[in-house]
């Protein structure tokens, strides 16, 4: 994981964008949309949690 971990600056609203995750995985056997939906929603919650401490 750590070797493969990419250097990137996450866009607003993201910490680990799904796009980056997919590049690391190189594709998944199942339906991407099913996984992506909750990944992005929870990732945005993580982002909001972090910025909460700045905006407070």
């Amino acid at each position: 994981m750590s070797e493969k971990e990419k250097k990137f600056v996450p866009e607003p609203g993201t910490c680990t964008p799904w796009k980056v995750k997919m590049e690391e995985l190189g594709g998944i056997p199942g339906n991407e949309e099913i996984v992506k939906k909750d990944w992005e929603r929870l990732d945005e919650t993580a982002y909001n949690f972090l910025w909460f401490w700045v905006h407070r």
Binding site: V9, P10, C15, Y47, L50, W51, W53, V54
Partner: peptide, 16 residues
């Protein structure tokens, strides 16, 4: 400036 979300997570949050 280089990576604000990263900085918040790794420097700011532990500091506060």
């Amino acid at each position: 400036i280089a990576n604000p979300t990263e900085w918040i997570a790794t420097t700011y949050l532990p500091r506060i």
